[in-house]
């Protein structure tokens, strides 16, 4: 990571970070035990650890979604791809296939799904919402087809470890996901990929005229997003030790889009903030946990989420921005 980007990102993630921190502080005031982390039988436990673990799966999907949204697109099919990947895992493990091969297949099938989306969007020029809607609808059916409509229980303890295991007392899944975030960050920022993605999202015509391979770049981000969803499907299946093709990944596309937008990447494309997405995903999970701690039934939790997203999109809207700047100017004069 280079210095200029660090500074810029730091400025831009200040908002979501402030939101996350104030939520944590609020919780800590309400319940001092909230931030407490204990070491039990060599494993860390506590609400913050739970938040990390719980958000890992959505966070991974949001990683791919960040890049897709940065090109000015969106991928609605990720939830269905999660279900497909989970189904593939269950069937292959039941069949006695090696764990590594299983995971590779799940990720590969996710990438294939992403590639199809990319083909529709980049080569055939289909609107992203429309193109990914196809797989969103059909994908869950395919997942159910793979597992024959059953919920297949997975018995492999090695497989379960991926989601629920601990390494040196730290839960493995969030560590894996955060490592992927760091790796992705380095790959896109150390190569020119990040620049290309932002360029395409900011002004596609100008990017094409400057000689960028726009279609290839777009296909690539959808492919990556599919692969992330595939791996997330592995985590989901490992977490519940089963492939539930009906519920796995349900509403995940929405949570992922939320995390990206709350994290400061605009839905219109252009600049993206990988770090912002991490914070966005954590913020949403913390909000859910807070609701839970306050005794609000989990089913009502979408309400604050909805208010948050409206607030964030209003803050990002140009009209409100101009109005706020106007207020500040008046204030400065007065």
């Amino acid at each position: 990571m280079t210095f200029g980007e660090t500074k810029r990102e730091a400025r831009l993630v200040a908002w979501p970070l402030a939101g996350l921190l104030s939520l944590l502080v609020l919780n800590a005031l309400f319940d001092p035990a909230f931030l407490k982390i204990t070491l039990l039988e060599g494993h860390f436990y506590g609400v913050p650890v739970d938040i990390l673990t719980q958000s890992a799966r959505t966070m991974l999907v949001s990683l791919g979604m960040t890049l897709v949204i940065a090109t000015g697109g969106v991928d609605l099919s990720v939830g269905s791809v999660v279900a497909i990947a989970g189904a593939v895992c269950a069937v292959m493990l039941q069949d006695g296939q090696a764990l590594s091969l299983t995971i590779a297949a799940a990720v590969g099938i996710g990438a294939l799904a992403g590639g199809i989306n990319g083909l529709l969007v980049a080569r055939l020029g289909v609107q992203p919402i429309v193109a990914t809607l196809i797989l969103m609808v059909a994908g869950r059916g395919l997942a159910q087809l793979i597992v024959g409509g059953q919920v297949i229980i997975i018995t492999s303890s090695a497989f379960e470890f991926i989601s629920n295991g601990f390494v040196l007392g730290v839960p493995f899944a969030p560590v894996l996901v955060l490592a992927l975030f760091v790796a992705t960050h380095f790959v896109v920022r150390r190569t020119a990929l990040g620049l290309f993605v932002e360029a395409v999202g900011d002004n596609e015509t100008a990017s094409r005229f400057a000689g960028l391979a726009v279609a290839r770049i777009k296909t690539l981000v959808y492919l990556f997003c599919g692969a992330c969803a595939g791996l997330s499907g592995v985590l989901v299946a490992a977490n519940i030790k089963a492939a539930d093709s009906y519920r796995a990944g349900e509403n995940m596309e929405l949570d992922a889009i939320f995390a990206v937008v709350v994290g400061g990447t605009a839905l219109t494309g252009g600049r993206f903030l990988i770090l912002g997405t991490v914070i966005g995903a954590l913020l949403i999970q913390t909000l859910t946990t807070t609701m839970y701690n306050l005794g609000v039934p989990p089913a009502v939790a979408p309400v604050p989420k909805a208010l948050l997203i409206i607030a964030v999109s209003l803050l990002q809207s140009e009209k409100v921005g101009r109005w706020l700047r106007g207020l500040f100017k008046k204030g400065a004069v007065a």
Binding site: V74, I129, L254, I257, F258, V261, L267, T268, K305, A306, L307, I309, I310, S313, L314, S317, E318, K319, V320
Partner: peptide, 11 residues
Amino acid sequence: FRLPPFLITLA
């Protein structure tokens, strides 16, 4: 506010 329908109706 010229917000994307997709996002607002999601909310």
